[in-house]
Write a protein that binds this DNA or RNA. Structure first.
Length: 726
DNA sequence: AGTAAACTACTCTAGACAGCATGTC
DNA sequence: CTAGAGTAGTTTACT
């Protein structure tokens, strides 16, 4: 279909033509002819990069221009929210306003009301629904990207509930990878189903075994025995490769190994640029390896890397500077990063209980990354058979069908939280209404029966009543109690809330960082670290040393959860080090973790301590305890000792600058106000920008000559805690 | 006896969503 | 029930 024939607002056609697109891909055309433009629901199951986004944009903008109202675009990752936000921003030329909201960004309610297109993570939108923001009424279209995540064990229930809520309130456009039972999904959503495996770049799939590459059509090619030759070959052809492995350690090892073999394939300018890139990285144990790999044009990519490093690697790969990325599943879904050749080294992964085959759906998503539109005529996806029979792999992953989607609503943890929300935030008034609502879910559509989930729901309701999240009156009507309502809005697991409340008496008696951090670490919402075997004794000793500070008993060795407990102690200790200004580098070393891990722990702890405070407020809080908790929250957020609390409240002053200021003798805000600009600039990490910010904060005019001068002092005053202590 | 190689037993393992906007009377 | 890589510790082989 030609864009000019598209039955949508003329302005939309103009924008698309302006992008140089004149013709729609076949599946796009089919999707747009399905009735979706007339308001019908649609499930669109087509490969990544075959133009789902453009379909969404056309449907979305057309709807907004014709009917007004709002459209919500749901994504599974914060990084994707950002990506989509930037893409949709282009439509602001038509007078529509675009916003993105995730846990990182602006939160509530009415602020978002001023926007027409709202990009949000599923959890964030769920949270917005719970808060009952007024503008939700105006949502006329919900687009759920990567809707197959409805089958994800821990996050699927959220998506399912959102769609159940919105089903008869808004038009639904569900974008899915190819799944085994798309028609079932469409049936639930009362939607037209469009399925296609058409791709703008042809995809060749094959299996590699001991030097022999067998394509799905039976053609064979010979290579050196080691699979690395596949990656090197791609680079030799002037292309790029993406290698998927199943552990961080493998990603790092393979990157370094490939890197050493690639040096001669690089040009002089590339070598120089790569060296610069490597040198720009901060120093820490993981980055040393990364630097080595990058100098040879290879990078590894996993969740231990910080946000900045990941983005840097992605950009350098897109620019063609980095030739090969070895990655854990961080790159298998999510951000758009195609490569000519995709090599899948592992098809099994360790998953808590043992080794499992990676689902077909996931492997096919990895394979779908092969082929860069505009650069490649074909993309190649190759599975490496190392121990498994190549024929089995060919059957299962290349020729096989992806798994069916199953509702994960009955997952106990997710369901507990959702049942609470239904009662406290969505006006479900009694058990009958609860069951009625469940009748609208994918779970019911799929199973045609709710008896087993009713049983679970009943248990949960009893649990909620027993723990005073809700109550029931004489007519068996639910009553939302403040504790329940707040728990639901804080978006924490009811079990977490219960743990907090049970700990309040002891906490009041003996508020201390270690006890509080351990409490946080022991909740199901926290991602705790694992204690290694050889660390067991250390953390057990630590626990006994701090026994009086803990709010729980130390378990016995035989107890279930003993190892988990040690992990909690380890996590608490990391947080304790953090607020005692132990430098990041030393934390990575001591605990064997990476920057991404630390960031994750801090992010979660920050959210949970806030929630702890909010819940404590509901139970006749003691003023001194409350202010103790608030100070601790601030210390946690900035990673500082108590004496820096005052400085850290200033704009752009974090743990490093605050310490530097303090060491230089500026110990209070008052000291800073009275300081000479020249003296402030002499402090490590403080430049003109920061000083300007400070003066603006205090509402003081910056002296004219300082503005012009602003020269940096020759000798900076050092600013670490060690400097202070020595 | 000294040392290097070979063998064995043990350890470890992916990812990533959510709140809210401060202050002591 | 299903792995595979790395490491720490132990035994064996050989001079």
């Amino acid at each position: 279909m030609r864009i000019e024939e598209l039955p949508v607002d003329e302005r939309i056609r103009r924008v698309i033509l302006g992008r140089g697109i004149e013709e729609l891909y076949p599946p796009q055309a089919e999707a747009l002819r399905s009735g979706v433009l007339e308001g019908k629901n649609l499930v669109l199951a087509i490969p990544t990069a075959s133009g789902k986004t453009l379909v969404s944009e056309i449907v979305m903008i057309n709807k907004l221009l014709r009917e007004g109202g709002k459209a919500v675009y749901l994504v599974p990752l914060k990084a994707l929210a950002e990506e989509k936000y930037r893409e949709f921003k282009a439509w602001e030329s038509l007078g529509l306003r675009v916003a993105a909201t995730t846990g990182d960004y602006d939160s509530t309610d009415e602020w978002l009301g001023r926007y027409d297109i709202i990009v949000a993570t599923a959890e964030k939108f769920d949270s917005l629904l719970r808060h009952g923001a007024g503008w939700i009424r105006d949502v006329k279209l919900v687009i759920a990207d990567e809707v197959h995540l409805i089958g994800s064990y821990d996050r699927g229930a959220t998506l399912e509930m959102i769609l159940s809520h919105m089903l008869d309130k808004a038009q639904i456009l569900a974008l899915s990878a190819t799944v085994g039972n798309a028609e079932e999904l469409a049936g639930w959503l009362d939607a037209t189903l469009v399925v296609s495996d058409w791709r703008p770049v042809e995809l060749r799939k094959g299996v590699f075994h001991l030097g022999e590459l067998m394509w799905e059509d039976g053609k064979r090619e010979s290579y050196p025995e080691n699979w690395e030759s596949l990656a090197l070959d791609a680079v030799r052809k002037g292309k790029q490769a993406l290698v998927f492995v199943n552990t961080r350690r493998s990603a790092e090892k393979e990157a370094v190994s490939l890197s050493s073999k690639m040096a001669r394939l690089l040009t002089k300018p590339e070598v120089r640029e790569l060296r610069e890139l490597a040198d720009s990285l901060e120093s820490n144990p993981t980055n040393e390896k990364l630097k080595r790999a990058i100098r040879g044009g290879v990078a590894f990519h996993h969740a231990g890397l910080s946000r900045a490093e990941r983005t840097m690697i992605e950009d350098a790969f897109r620019d063609g500077l980095i030739k090969v990325i070895t990655a854990t599943p961080t790159l298998s879904a999510g951000i758009n990063l195609p490569a000519f050749r995709v090599i899948i080294r592992d098809t099994k992964r360790y998953s808590g209980f043992g080794w499992t085959d990676i689902p077909v759906l996931e492997i096919q998503q990895m394979m779908g990354r092969a082929g860069r539109p505009k650069y490649d005529r074909v993309g190649e996806a190759i599975i490496v058979a190392r121990t498994e029979d190549p024929k089995t792999l060919m059957e299962r992953y290349v020729k096989g069908k992806p798994e069916k989607l199953f509702s994960m609503l009955a997952n106990e943890n997710a369901f507990r939280s959702q049942v609470l929300a239904l009662i406290t935030n969505f006006g479900i008034g009694n058990f009958r209404e609860l069951i009625d609502f469940l009748g609208r879910t994918f779970y019911f559509h799929q199973r045609k029966d709710t008896s087993s989930i009713e049983y679970k729901a009943k248990d949960i309701v009893y649990f909620l009543i027993e723990n005073e999240f809700i109550d029931m009156d004489l007519n068996d009507r639910f009553i939302a109690l403040p504790f329940g309502k707040r728990t639901s809005q804080l978006y924490i697991d009811p079990l977490t809330a219960k743990k907090f409340r049970d700990a309040f008496p002891k906490l009041e008696e003996n508020p201390n960082p270690f006890g509080i951090f351990h409490l946080i670490a022991s909740t199901p919402d926290m991602a705790t670290l694992r204690a290694r075997k050889r660390e067991f004794e250390d953390y057990l000793d630590l626990a006994y040393e701090f026994e009086e500070k803990l709010y729980t008993e130390i378990p016995y060795y035989e107890d279930y959860g003993f190892q988990g407990f040690l992990g909690e102690v380890k996590t608490a200790k990391v947080l304790l080090d953090w607020i005692n200004e132990v430098p990041e580098g030393r934390i990575y070393e001591t605990y064997g973790i990476d920057p991404g891990d630390l960031y994750r722990i801090l992010e979660l702890a920050d959210w949970l301590i806030y929630s702890l405070i909010e819940l404590y407020k509901l139970f006749e809080p003691k003023k001194d305890v409350l202010s103790y908790l608030r100070d601790l929250h601030l210390r946690l957020r900035h990673g500082v000792r108590e004496e820096l609390l005052e400085l850290v409240r200033l704009p752009n002053i974090g743990r490093r600058r605050a310490r530097a200021l303090y060491n230089a003798g500026f110990r209070t805000q008052d000291d800073v106000v009275r300081a000479k600009v020249r003296d402030l600039l002499a402090v490590e990490g403080i430049g003109m920008k920061v000083v300007e910010g400070l003066f603006r904060h205090f509402g003081v005019e910056l002296p004219e000559k300082a503005k012009k001068g602003g020269k940096t002092a020759e000798r900076r005053k050092k600013g670490t805690l060690d400097d202070f202590l020595s």
